[in-house]
Simulated assay, not measured.
Amino acid sequence: MKPRPYTESVLVVDDTEFMARVLADMLTGAGYRVLVALGGPEALKVYERELPDVVTLDVVMPGMDGIQVLRLLREIDPACRVIMVSAVGHEARVLEAVQLGARNYVLKPVDKDKLLGAVRRALDEY
Rank of each mutant, 00 (worst) to 15 (best):
M1Y: 04
M1G: 15
K2P: 11
Y6A: 13
Y6K: 11
V10P: 02
L11K: 02
V12P: 06
V12I: 05
V13K: 02
V13S: 03
D15F: 12
F18Q: 13
M19S: 15
R21P: 07
V22N: 00
D25P: 07
M26Y: 15
L27D: 04
L27S: 08
G31S: 11
V34T: 13
V34Y: 12
V34A: 13
V36L: 06
A37Y: 04
L38I: 10
L38K: 03
G40D: 03
G40F: 10
P41K: 09
E42D: 15
A43T: 04
L44G: 12
L44T: 05
K45Y: 11
K45E: 14
Y47T: 09
Y47M: 14
R49S: 14
L51C: 13
D53V: 06
V55P: 15
T56F: 06
L57G: 09
L57I: 04
D58A: 08
D58T: 01
V59L: 07
V60W: 07
G63S: 07
M64F: 08
D65S: 02
D65V: 00
G66D: 01
I67P: 00
I67R: 00
I67Y: 00
Q68C: 09
Q68R: 13
V69H: 03
V69A: 05
L70K: 01
R71T: 10
L72P: 03
L72W: 05
L73Q: 04
I76C: 10
D77K: 13
D77F: 11
D77G: 11
P78Q: 07
P78V: 10
A79E: 15
I83L: 01
I83W: 00
I83G: 02
I83A: 02
M84R: 00
V85K: 00
V85H: 00
A87S: 15
V88N: 08
A92T: 05
A92S: 14
A92C: 06
R93L: 14
V94Y: 08
V94W: 05
V94T: 08
E96T: 08
E96K: 05
V98H: 04
L100C: 10
G101H: 03
G101Y: 04
A102C: 10
A102L: 03
R103I: 06
Y105D: 01
V106P: 00
V106G: 03
G117K: 00
G117Y: 01
A118H: 00
R120W: 03
R120G: 01
R121W: 01
A122P: 12
A122G: 02
D124G: 02
